[in-house]
Amino acid sequence: MDIGGINLVTLLATLIVASVPILMAALGEMVVEKSGTLNLGVEGMMIMGAVTGFVVAVTTGNPVLGFLGGAAAGAAMAGLFALLTQVLLANQVASGLALTLFGLGLSSLMGQGWNGIRPPLTGDVPLGPLADIPVLGPILFSHDWMVYLSLILVVAIWWFLRATRAGLILRAVGESHEAAHALGYKVRRIRTGAILFGGAMAGMGGAYVSLVRVPQWTDGITSGAGWIALAIVVFASWKPWRVLMGAWLFGGISVLQLNLQAAGSRIPVEYLTMSPYIITILVLVLISSGRGRAMGAPADLGKTFHASH
């Protein structure tokens, strides 16, 4: 099972874990974008979730409370974004970028004095004999509960958007806010709800980075994961299953990169560091060129809704 000094089973098992933060954030952002709002502040919401989750978990000694704290912090950041874009009708792109910069700064301030501490352990879910199956066991059945939660959320969100009335209304609002408004749906309220959900998801994803992935607190710990999440939503054509594939792909690349380094390969680490931003630029170009529509973007994505009556 070893290829070029890399163990395939370990690689697959780690890539599933590595993809959780991106997957959570991307799922949340996908719901936000489906409702017609483009929130570029995913990175900021994630890192706020990371620092808050870390502080809460260390203080209480309970990782579950840590994840809830992370979700709350992400939602609070999203609430700020919702206030700016839905109530004060500010530009979404600028507000989102500001949110990220604000989050990076604030998290750094909040995290002072929390460096070098180990958070309480988030244990694996005991799946008994399943975990002992060769190959499949380590890959699929020996992870912590957040991994399984994120996979359940993929299914839940897919089902919500596809089969429920609330999901249909959410898609309709993103498709044409004017028409939705004419039919009597509360466009801003629905969008605000989606934005808060997206924030909570990003916050949880961030908390996963500081509580499980790393696990400790350092400045800028999310290192571009939010930007990758944003890009995945677009490349996944706003479809949950493809978001999962995208998250695994990017998770795989980051794990592989570490493994390659360990195996003595010489790909400079800077390429990976800059990749989220290059991809984000590509994504923004795609959305604003009108090509996004053909890829399945919601028609009113990024447009400010201004009720005419």
Binding site: R171, E175, S176, A179
Partner: peptide, 18 residues
């Protein structure tokens, strides 16, 4: 409505349901 209150990317049935 004069300017249709329809959603282009959705199906006829989904539009009616909304």
């Amino acid at each position: 409505f004069q300017h249709f209150s329809l959603f282009d990317a959705l199906t006829v049935a989904e539009n009616v349901a909304l």
